[in-house]
């Protein structure tokens, strides 16, 4: 009886987690003209249509660029920050950690509004640059946190050993520290990438004419058209995320770092 209850709870949890995903996949595979579940017949035509919508292509490229370059920038800033926070007894280290984590603690709406009101408008920054800054800031907490945790187990005497064998401090970092936190850096990259790519509230405030990230573009599309292509696109994006995580898991055992 107890056994049965355990399986029941597990089943319900899985349905709760995976159910929406299944519904979206099926809704996108509908043969009918409207977004509906259960689908009215099966076809892949809406999956095909996604690729023909011009604005999706443009916004996909923008989202992709923001996710890749925003995350790389966040790592370039975040890895040295994580290193310094781990290695040195910095005054106010706790404060720095809190500030770095702020973008994920403060609601996105507020971050977006604040950036729009106090950066974009008064400083006359272009929308693309503003989006880039916002996404970098949003990813930075993940970069610092995840890289920090993989650096945590790395003893400082390993670098001292490298120095005594002839390394400069910089060489000790690139030859000894970096190879040993590679997995953490990749994990941070994937988390950052996914966070940035799926980001809605901040981007909502910073989108301008002709400059929209993919999620914002999808919202706008749904306001006008209610066909299954939006479900098809959602399903495709979910598969993309799955593929990235799968490859990372295979290559490096990603789940150890999260």
């Amino acid at each position: 009886m107890r056994h049965f209850a355990n399986w029941g709870i597990l089943g319900l949890t899985l349905i709760f987690l995976i159910g929406p995903f299944v519904i979206i996949i099926l809704a996108g595979a509908s043969a009918g003209p409207n977004l509906a579940f259960p689908p009215e017949g099966l076809s892949l035509k809406w999956y095909a249509k996604v690729f023909t919508i011009e604005s999706f292509r443009a916004s996909f490229v923008l989202s992709m660029a923001l996710a890749v370059f925003g995350t790389i920038t966040a790592l370039v800033l975040g890895i040295p920050a994580a290193y310094a926070l781990n290695r040195y007894d910095l005054p106010g280290a706790e404060t720095i950690r809190t500030i770095v984590a702020a973008p994920i603690i403060v609601p996105g709406i507020i971050v977006g509004l604040a950036l729009l009101r106090y950066v974009v408008v008064p400083m006359n920054v272009t929308v693309t640059v503003a989006l880039f800054m916002a996404h970098t800031a949003l990813v930075l907490p993940y970069a610092v946190r995840v890289v920090s945790s993989s650096m945590h187990n790395l003893r400082a005497d390993m670098e001292e050993a490298a120095v005594l064998l002839g390394c400069s401090r910089m060489q000790a970092f690139t030859k000894v520290v970096l190879p040993n936190i590679r997995g953490g850096v990749l994990a941070a990259f994937i988390l950052g990438f996914v966070t940035s790519f799926n980001q809605v509230p901040v981007s909502l405030f910073l989108s301008g004419p002709g400059v929209r990230t993919l999620p914002i573009d999808m919202l706008a599309y749904m306001e006008i058209t209610f066909d299954p292509s939006i479900a098809a696109l959602s399903a495709l994006l979910a598969f993309m995320s799955l593929a990235i995580v799968f490859v990372a898991e295979r290559l490096l055992g990603f789940s150890r770092y999260v």
């Binding site: 005497d157 390993m158 001292e160 050993a161 005594l164 000894v176 040993n180």
Partner: peptide
Amino acid sequence: AANKRGIGLVFQSYALFPH
């Protein structure tokens, strides 16, 4: 500088490079 002294040090923790 430490990397120019030509001195070897065997650390208590060994400090081997795990990778």
